[in-house]
């Protein structure tokens, strides 16, 4: 690879070493391979205006495997479209392509199309518009990439003097289901207060599931009480997929006591 000077190669080597160290200490993961492309991009973009963004994303990708795909695409796609030189744009494309190849990102076709289209548009200013246009079309006509985690999120709980309190995270399109597991022992009466909104219709937007029972509720405020025994899990699920101009969200609090 022909580089301006040794500095670029040394920046890349620093990144590769960090990648090697991560894999050595955390165990090898094929998902981390796109980071190699990102560190190449980092070296090539040193000195350009993209560099701070790529550096920030490199650090985020390095320390947080959960955020790595986000960091890869947020640095790779702008590099693809707004990179000053062809080398940067190719490295950005490889970063995007390798992420989409190795990590199962849903609704990724528009991302790939934007990354590829950047090579067919010579005008720099027109290329700048690729991302906003791609994002808008994707949001309006397709969908946006969904959450990577396949396992549902489990709500935290504390039991004190026979009374249980659940700490339930916000349920939204990036975290579409939360489980409230019953304590390991005893029979428990559990109350749940739900507040759902951010949609523009009254069609049911959440499902509350316990064993074989299921309750569908529209947006608004609801309170439920259920009896739970060991092995039960109460699931709060968002029934809405992504839709533009909708901020579907469920806030819930729950608590109960041992019967």
């Amino acid at each position: 690879m022909k580089t301006k000077d040794n500095r670029e190669v040394l920046v890349m080597l620093s990144g590769y070493n960090a990648w090697a160290a991560v894999n050595l200490f955390r165990g090898f993961s094929a998902d981390s391979l796109p980071l190699i492309a990102l560190f190449t991009l980092l070296g090539l973009s040193s000195g350009s205006v993209l560099f701070p963004i790529v550096l920030g994303c490199s650090l985020v990708g390095l320390i947080s495997p959960a955020l790595m795909p986000w960091a890869m695409l947020v640095s790779g796609l702008p590099a693809c479209t707004a990179g000053r030189t062809m080398k940067i744009r190719i490295a950005g494309f490889i970063a995007v392509a390798s992420t989409l190849w190795l990590i199962p990102v849903s609704h990724s076709v528009p991302l790939a199309v934007v990354a590829a289209a950047a090579f067919f548009i010579g005008n720099k200013h027109l290329r700048y518009f690729l991302i906003p246009v791609g994002f808008t079309l994707s949001a309006v006509f397709f969908s946006l990439p969904g959450p990577l985690a396949v396992e549902p999120v489990i709500a935290g709980s504390t039991i004190k003097d026979g009374v249980i309190d659940y700490d339930i995270p916000e349920v939204n399109t990036s975290r579409p289901e939360v489980l409230l597991p019953a304590p390991f022992e005893g029979t428990w009466a559990v109350w749940i207060a739900l507040e759902a909104g951010g949609v523009r219709d009254s069609v049911p937007m959440m499902a509350i599931r316990l064993g074989e029972e299921i309750l569908l509720l529209p947006s608004g405020t609801d309170t439920l009480s259920v009896t739970m025994i060991p092995g039960d899990s109460l699931a709060i699920s968002l029934m809405r997929d992504f839709k533009p101009f909708n901020h579907s969200v469920i806030h819930a609090t729950a608590g109960g006591e041992r019967l």
Partner: peptide, 26 residues
Amino acid sequence: RWFFPVVLSFTVGAWLWMLYPSGWII
């Protein structure tokens, strides 16, 4: 000169915010 990379990064970030629950914060 930093302006357009920031605009593009924000747009891609918004495009991908659902990938990770804290993605929207970043």
